[in-house]
């Protein structure tokens, strides 16, 4: 079992054409699959995401607060948290947790379905596995990842506030003011686009790797490993690309690019 970008692209194109042809979201069963997947993906990762947000929020505030206080720039803490959590860490950490918990489970589930002949029987019965299995999973994956990332950001900001009270000693209204002035519309756009994109890509990868098996049971763990490894690869590359593009345009707009 080998990974191939052209095969992944063909898989993605087939998913889009099946979506267009069958319009699976009209079916109550597909909607039920979406809700079920959102529930399982969300509930499975909820506690882990909370724990990650608490730890990362605390460490970031302690580390950056200590440095900022040395230079008398404690007021910049809010802006740093916005840049760190909304633009970068929130989407990245959430997707990593989702890959570890849900993508692996989904890839092995689909590979098992293939080994049990369920995929062939769906196809033979005139039900497209792409419409019934892939479309709802990719959609629900994007939604669940987005919800989890919002949860991550909310928890990390709350924890960041309490930690800053202890280590940096910023009053509540100043902290909120710093955070709110630090958030721009572009930050929110990047957060939503990046998270939804990363979420849908990793679940597409899970479906691709799960359904690509030939039906032998020894390929189930191979499919799971391949889904996790390639999901991480795509997540890191996409994270870097989106952030790189953002900073490129910001620097270009502010005229700093020419100075570099």
């Amino acid at each position: 079992m080998e990974f191939s970008i052209s095969a992944l692209w063909a898989f993605f194109s087939t998913m889009l054409s099946s979506w267009k042809r069958d319009r699976p979201l009209r079916h109550l069963d597909t909607r039920a699959v979406i809700l079920r997947q959102i529930f399982f993906t969300g509930s499975e990762a909820f506690r882990l995401i909370s724990l990650a947000a608490i730890i990362i929020g605390t460490v970031t505030v302690i580390q950056s607060g200590a440095q900022l206080r040395k230079f008398g720039g404690a007021d910049a803490l809010g802006s740093i948290l916005v840049a760190a959590f909304i633009r970068e860490v929130g989407p990245l950490v959430t997707t990593i947790v989702v890959v570890a918990r849900s993508v692996s489970a989904m890839a092995s589930e689909l590979a098992s379905m293939r080994a049990n002949g369920e995929i062939d029987s769906l196809r033979a019965c005139g039900v497209s596995p792409q419409s019934y299995l892939v479309v709802p999973r990719v959609l629900s994956g994007a939604i669940a990842t987005l919800l989890l990332a919002m949860h991550f950001v909310w928890i990390s900001f709350t924890v960041g506030f309490f930690t800053s009270q202890v280590f940096v000693n910023i009053p509540f209204d100043r902290f909120v003011d710093n955070v709110l002035t630090g958030i721009t519309g572009m930050d929110l756009v990047i957060f939503f686009v990046k998270t939804a994109l990363l979420g849908s890509v990793v679940f597409l990868m899970a479906c691709y790797c799960g359904l690509r098996t030939s039906g032998a049971s020894y390929e189930i763990p191979q499919a799971t490993t391949m889904a996790v490894v390639w999901s991480f690869m795509f997540v890191f590359v996409m994270q870097l690309s989106i952030s790189g593009l953002y900073y490129f345009f910001v620097l270009q707009r502010s005229g700093l690019l020419g100075m570099l």
Partner: peptide, 22 residues
């Protein structure tokens, strides 16, 4: 998936050696 259109598949009732019940 595109070997045979859905509407043609639906005119054929199939049960293979492995039933593939969900």
């Amino acid at each position: 998936e595109n070997i045979m259109p859905q509407s043609l598949r639906r005119r054929i009732g199939v049960c293979l050696e492995v039933e593939g019940l969900l």
